[in-house]
């Protein structure tokens, strides 16, 4: 099934990689470079799932997830956290913030796609 995905990451390289991976998987993809931009894009678009980095300027991943979940219509949108950190407490924080799942950077493209399918069908 073709999903529409919002991917938020401040690194151009990672955005490029995400774009390539998701497009190859047949998903339609929108990219944003930080949490604030991500919220802007969410404002007028609907997505099946969101992927977000944690360390970002302006609004980091935790703040972004908070802000997304704070809106009633996004209560149940799946959010995957993309992070280089594998520390358990980070995953715990992400989950407490409302993240659905996580993918560790550098991500393995098929695994990312599988993770998206797990949370978004």
């Amino acid at each position: 099934m073709s999903l529409s995905i919002l991917a938020v990451d401040d690194s151009q390289t990672i955005r490029n990689m995400l774009n390539m991976t998701l497009t190859d998987a047949g998903f339609s993809t929108r990219l944003a470079e930080d949490g604030l931009k991500g919220l802007e894009v969410l404002e007028n678009n609907s997505f099946d799932a969101i992927i977000t980095d944690i360390n970002m300027p302006n609004l980091d991943g935790f703040g972004f997830i908070d802000a997304v979940r704070a809106q009633e219509r996004f209560r149940s949108i799946p959010i995957l956290v993309l992070t280089t950190e594998v520390a358990p407490e980070l995953k715990a924080r992400a989950r407490d913030a409302g993240a659905t799942g996580w993918v560790v950077k550098p991500f393995d493209p098929p695994k990312l796609v599988r993770a998206l399918q797990l949370v978004a069908g």
């Binding site: 949490g35 302006n58 980091d60 358990p88 407490e89 913030a97």
Partner: peptide, 23 residues
């Protein structure tokens, strides 16, 4: 069930103070 490894004082989901500063 919460992850009990996170026992340090960090408040979990609270966004960092500096994180939402205007660009």
């Amino acid at each position: 069930p919460k992850l009990s490894t996170d026992q340090d004082a960090k408040a979990p989901a609270a966004p960092k103070a500096g994180a939402q500063k205007p660009a």
